[in-house]
Design a protein around this nucleic acid. Structure first.
Lengths: 225, 225
DNA sequence: TTATTTATGATAGTAATGCTATCATTTAAT
DNA sequence: ATTAAATGATAGCATTACTATCATAAATAA
């Protein structure tokens, strides 16, 4: 049996549901490829349309603008990652083991999981590293937040914060520590690959080092309290 | 005596030195105001020119494009901050006290310091929180890095990494911890003000809480090793 | 002092971006 | 078979992101 993982998306993110048609799925698929290749700044709906073989107007029927599309992709990613985490930490009793697992999932390269043919999770993960924060580092963050665009990110953060509290019920900063490890899993990866002198992994370039660093931060913080 | 703090800027960042003329200083001053007000995405040289009362072409004589201007502003900020840190931690012997001071400087609102009339450090600090990472989270990060655009950031990171090692000579991740506290000082501030459920300071909204969180992370990490 | 370089202002123009609108056609639902 | 919905094709328009040209003002060197 082929499981069909469908992530429930906030309907305010799109004009027409991209998962409901071939063109829509193509928009998702090719936008991931194009943002990955060109970067978000150089990414335009015109180029995307050419890639797909449709017209600009066709894209605009699905997404209001490229910002909404980026928010859609990041929301999809966080939803997918939360599912991966709940799936892969299921049946683990020891919260410490669970949290280690979470950190590994956050900082590891993702392999394309084939369940969703139109989303290449590996590429999407790399996009999130470089472009993910641009979804909320904007002037409209307040309105976007009111519309719940960042709920998947917040949910993930809450899940991780809970595991942190299970490890160490008296720890005072579970949510901030959660958002810190999420962001640092990405930033340290970006730095390692692009600005290596900002890290201690420049020579080795192994994600295992980043995982060790995050584990060190998290478990020394939690041991104390 | 009025001290005139001049930060030595990388000449590849500009076409004409903005600190060398009235128009140039106006570009710096008004770009900070306008980016703060409109956000970097909506910021254009046209609007900037109108604000200043000059023409678009006038701006282009100083900066190739708005990306370079942003990189210039961030580089200026990191250079300024490194000076602040070296100044304000001067004569402090105890590296632990020194590091606490650094964390406080990283996470505190900045008051405009009047030494540089054309740069409002308080506004610039707020810009760096929201827009700072966009200077390097781009496709051109490699070329920009080759041209040393991020040297001030790396230098600051190296300085903080050194203090970390003074506190705890065996600690394995001084540079990654340094880049982590720099970025988290900003991200936690942004989250606190805009996406408070990603932090534990939503209700209180005090930077003192962020400082306490960073201190907790840093000094538990260092105590152990 | 005049001559000359240099910075600015004013204006134009062009290709690309970020949309919106219209209408014909294909495809799907009733 | 009729109607509704999605797509394709084309047009158009305001803004953005530049580049170029020429005149003038200010600074500087001869």
């Amino acid at each position: 049996m082929k499981l069909h993982l469908q992530i429930k998306m906030n309907e305010a993110l799109f004009l027409r549901n991209p998962e409901g048609s071939e063109l829509g799925k193509n928009i998702l698929k090719h936008s991931i490829q194009l943002i990955f290749k060109a970067g978000f700044e150089a990414f335009t709906f015109k180029k995307l349309a050419e890639d797909i073989g449709t017209t600009e107007a066709g894209i605009y029927r699905y997404f209001e603008n490229k910002h909404k599309l980026l928010v859609y992709l990041t929301a999809w990613y966080w939803g997918w990652l939360e599912f991966q985490i709940s799936f892969q930490t299921n049946n683990i009793k020891d919260p410490t083991v669970k949290l280690k697992r979470v950190i590994k999932l956050l900082a590891s390269a993702v392999e394309d999981d084939e369940q969703t043919s139109y989303i290449n999770e590996s590429l999407l993960h790399q996009i999130i590293i470089t472009e993910g924060t641009k979804a909320y580092l904007t002037k409209q963050v307040g309105e976007d937040n009111k519309q719940q665009f960042f709920k998947p990110y917040k949910d993930l953060c809450a899940v991780i914060g809970k595991i942190i509290l299970e490890c160490s019920p008296k720890y005072k900063y579970p949510k901030s520590l959660a958002s810190t490890i999420i962001e640092m899993a990405h930033f340290q990866t970006f730095f390692m690959n692009n600005l290596p002198s900002l890290t201690d992994f420049g020579k080795i370039k192994k994600e295992a080092e980043i995982i060790a660093f995050l584990n060190d931060i998290v478990f020394t913080s939690l041991k104390k309290s």
